[in-house]
């Protein structure tokens, strides 16, 4: 029967609704190639993708947290701490594989701590992860004594500089993360329950969903991706920097929001997030190619985030008066 088929996307507006941010991304790429003839070179595109990879990996974990109705401000600091600890282990002669597993484990563990306080302590995620952000950054500075730790391990360099066929390793890792997260969110039982928890926690609880477990899980996933990003970053820089990843949480959140995931939870996807990450990455790249100072780049980023989200809202509500309607319907839901 017809009900069994997924809803057909027919009207152009629905098409735009679904692919709106992709259009924004394509428009940016067209504009970029007009502004700079260096943009559309394979060298540059590969470069952008490599630069995007770290933020995209963080943003994948962030998506899952935001879908559950939370937020994770600690990812940048967790990235730095895992990097420092891993670099420290290798500097002390440790095996690279052990160090990598330790980094992933530490990131996950810090995420579990976040999740534990959010779920069982019933504290607001903003506050818990803000505390973790301060804690992990402080711990990094203590551990490194404020100085970079150099990594001279050849095998470990693969994560930042190696490649799988023609694909740079960071990009390959990013692709694997997104494939795994996509399958997890769309097909895995736990992934599907994340949407329910984010959409209506009370209803999920009353339907027998293990809400607390799900919450710990999403922060653990975000911690894991932060550890993974820490590995790639440390490998790329041949060292762990004590200030690595500062304010990366904001770029990750921006990518998630640009990707159309609702900050109130329950709605969104990692496919959107990766588009959002590329929008941010390409913006920075174009401004670099045009020799715009990095101070102005931040200004531009702020503007683009606002305009893109505004545009998205307009497309979603559709037609004139859409903005106000959006506000009205939100007020109604509140």
């Amino acid at each position: 029967m017809s009900l069994l088929k997924p809803q057909a996307v027919s009207a152009p507006r629905q098409w735009i609704r679904r692919y709106g941010m992709l259009l924004v991304l394509l428009a940016m790429m067209v504009l970029a190639s007009l502004l700079s003839d260096r943009f559309l070179t394979s060298n540059n595109l590969m470069n952008v993708t490599r630069q995007v990879a770290i933020n995209a990996i963080l943003a994948a974990g962030m998506t899952v947290v935001i879908l559950s109705g939370g937020i994770d401000l600690s990812v940048g600091s967790v990235l730095a701490l895992t990097g420092a600890v891993g670099a420290g282990m290798m500097a002390a002669g440790g095996n690279w594989l052990v160090a990598v597993l330790a980094m992933l484990g530490l990131g996950t563990l810090l995420g579990v701590v976040n999740g534990f306080f959010v779920a069982y302590g019933q504290l607001p995620p903003f506050i818990v992860t803000l505390a973790m952000m301060a804690f992990a950054r402080g711990a990094t500075l203590v551990y490194t004594n404020g100085r970079p730790i150099t990594v001279l391990n050849n095998a470990f360099q693969w994560f930042g500089h190696g490649s799988v066929g023609p694909v740079p390793a960071p990009v390959a890792i990013m692709i694997i993360v997104y494939l795994a997260f996509y399958i997890f969110l769309n097909r895995a039982t736990l992934g599907r329950l994340i949407y329910a928890v984010g959409g209506n926690e009370r209803a999920a609880r009353m339907s027998g969903v293990r809400v607390n477990f799900i919450k710990v899980l999403v922060y653990a996933m975000s911690g894991f991706t932060a550890g993974l990003a820490g590995i790639v970053m440390t490998s790329r820089l041949f060292s762990a920097q004590p200030t690595a990843g500062a304010s990366y949480e904001l770029d990750a959140i921006a990518a998630v929001i640009l990707g159309g995931t609702s900050l109130s939870g329950g709605r969104g996807s990692v496919t959107g997030t990766i588009i959002g990450a590329f929008i941010i990455g390409i913006l920075g790249n174009v401004l670099n190619l045009l020799n715009v100072s990095s101070f102005y780049q931040d200004v531009a980023k702020g503007v683009v985030i606002l305009v893109a989200v505004l545009l998205d809202r307009l497309i979603h509500a559709g037609g004139k008066g859409a903005l106000r309607k959006g506000v009205a319907s939100r007020a109604q839901q509140a």
């Binding site: 039982t189 329950l193 329910a196 959409g199 209506n200 009370r202 999920a204 009353m206 329950g266």
Partner: peptide, 30 residues
Amino acid sequence: EEGLVLILSVVANSSLAALDKVSRFGFVDV
């Protein structure tokens, strides 16, 4: 407040309390 996840679909709501019944090895049989 407690019965439905309003922003999710009919299918997601109707399977919510028994998702494991339509799941195998941790994945939903869509």
